[in-house]
Amino acid sequence: MEKLPFDVDAVFDRVRDAVSTLPKAAMFELYEDGYTSLFEQLISCLISVRTYDEVSLPVSRRLFEQARTPEGIAQLTPAQIETLIRDCTYPEQKAQQIHTIANQILMNYAGELPADEAVLMSFKGIGVKCAHLALGVACQQPYISVDTHVHRITNRWGYVETKTPEKTTIALEAKLPQQYWIEINQLLVPFGKHICTGKRPHCSQCPVLNWCQQKMDQ
């Protein structure tokens, strides 16, 4: 099949339509459910690390039923937090990190988490992906959050040629129109789970096959 020159606007339009009836990416679903604060988004993203959305979503909700603010989380013990998030990966480690983050926000920022990338990444357990995703979803700040789906799909398309999510972030920041920076994670997570899967992607069902270079080594 002869491929068309990559048209980012057309591709995003097609992908947007394709995922409209699919389960939403976890952080965006939580936002629509009312968990809109930067703190909630950051903690939810920490919970989701190396955990499937199907697990992290109910875990986040269970924690937030007990406490949704730094003050509330700090009043829980790490053991209590661990019990609430027990179904995610590394619950003991994450519980301690969540408790520590809440206390640091209380001590250093009077309980109000600044919408600042450097501040978020100063917390143990928070990397570029979580900082960018939380700021993008909660604050609408223009950041690109690259997870395994965004990395794999943009390389499979041939839109970027990188070896790591970190390098994909840099490449996309230099190339992707800023209007898509937040949305790319929102779209490509469900797209990568259900259509452009890691193994045996459903290319015959793909709405952007004409633009995709089908580089399958990512």
Rank of each mutant, 00 (worst) to 15 (best):
residue 1 M to Q: 03
residue 1 M to Y: 01
residue 3 K to S: 00
residue 4 L to V: 10
residue 4 L to Y: 09
residue 4 L to P: 00
residue 6 F to W: 01
residue 9 D to N: 13
residue 9 D to Y: 14
residue 12 F to Q: 06
residue 12 F to A: 02
residue 13 D to T: 15
residue 14 R to Q: 14
residue 15 V to P: 07
residue 16 R to V: 00
residue 20 S to L: 06
residue 21 T to W: 05
residue 24 K to H: 12
residue 28 F to K: 09
residue 30 L to E: 09
residue 32 E to S: 10
residue 33 D to K: 15
residue 33 D to I: 05
residue 37 S to T: 15
residue 40 E to N: 02
residue 42 L to M: 12
residue 44 S to N: 05
residue 45 C to D: 03
residue 45 C to A: 12
residue 47 I to E: 02
residue 48 S to D: 09
residue 48 S to C: 12
residue 49 V to R: 13
residue 50 R to T: 08
residue 56 S to Y: 11
residue 56 S to A: 15
residue 58 P to T: 08
residue 58 P to M: 03
residue 59 V to S: 09
residue 59 V to R: 02
residue 61 R to W: 10
residue 62 R to T: 07
residue 62 R to M: 04
residue 63 L to C: 01
residue 64 F to C: 08
residue 64 F to K: 04
residue 64 F to S: 03
residue 65 E to W: 00
residue 66 Q to F: 10
residue 70 P to Y: 07
residue 70 P to K: 11
residue 71 E to F: 12
residue 72 G to M: 02
residue 81 I to K: 00
residue 83 T to N: 02
residue 84 L to E: 06
residue 86 R to S: 10
residue 89 T to R: 11
residue 89 T to K: 09
residue 89 T to H: 03
residue 92 E to F: 08
residue 92 E to G: 08
residue 92 E to T: 15
residue 94 K to N: 03
residue 96 Q to T: 13
residue 96 Q to S: 13
residue 96 Q to C: 08
residue 97 Q to D: 02
residue 97 Q to N: 11
residue 98 I to M: 15
residue 99 H to Y: 15
residue 102 A to N: 10
residue 103 N to P: 07
residue 106 L to S: 00
residue 107 M to E: 14
residue 107 M to L: 13
residue 107 M to G: 03
residue 109 Y to Q: 01
residue 113 L to M: 13
residue 114 P to H: 10
residue 116 D to Q: 05
residue 116 D to K: 04
residue 116 D to S: 06
residue 117 E to A: 14
residue 117 E to V: 15
residue 117 E to I: 15
residue 120 L to S: 05
residue 122 S to N: 15
residue 122 S to V: 14
residue 124 K to V: 12
residue 124 K to W: 12
residue 125 G to S: 12
residue 125 G to M: 06
residue 127 G to I: 07
residue 128 V to F: 11
residue 129 K to T: 11
residue 130 C to Q: 13
residue 131 A to V: 09
residue 132 H to V: 04
residue 133 L to V: 05
residue 135 L to H: 13
residue 139 C to A: 12
residue 140 Q to M: 06
residue 141 Q to Y: 09
residue 143 Y to F: 15
residue 144 I to T: 02
residue 144 I to E: 01
residue 149 H to R: 02
residue 153 I to K: 02
residue 155 N to D: 05
residue 155 N to K: 09
residue 158 G to D: 09
residue 158 G to A: 13
residue 160 V to D: 04
residue 160 V to H: 06
residue 161 E to G: 11
residue 163 K to I: 04
residue 163 K to A: 05
residue 164 T to D: 07
residue 167 K to V: 01
residue 169 T to R: 14
residue 170 I to N: 04
residue 171 A to D: 06
residue 172 L to H: 10
residue 172 L to P: 10
residue 173 E to V: 10
residue 174 A to Y: 08
residue 177 P to E: 06
residue 177 P to W: 02
residue 178 Q to D: 04
residue 179 Q to F: 01
residue 182 I to G: 00
residue 183 E to W: 11
residue 185 N to S: 05
residue 186 Q to T: 11
residue 186 Q to V: 11
residue 187 L to V: 15
residue 187 L to R: 14
residue 190 P to A: 03
residue 194 H to D: 01
residue 194 H to K: 08
residue 198 G to N: 10
residue 199 K to M: 08
residue 203 C to Y: 05
residue 204 S to Q: 14
residue 205 Q to V: 13
residue 205 Q to P: 10
residue 206 C to W: 00
residue 207 P to M: 09
residue 207 P to K: 13
residue 208 V to I: 15
residue 208 V to G: 05
residue 209 L to N: 08
residue 209 L to A: 12
residue 210 N to R: 13
residue 212 C to T: 12
residue 215 K to M: 03
residue 217 D to V: 11
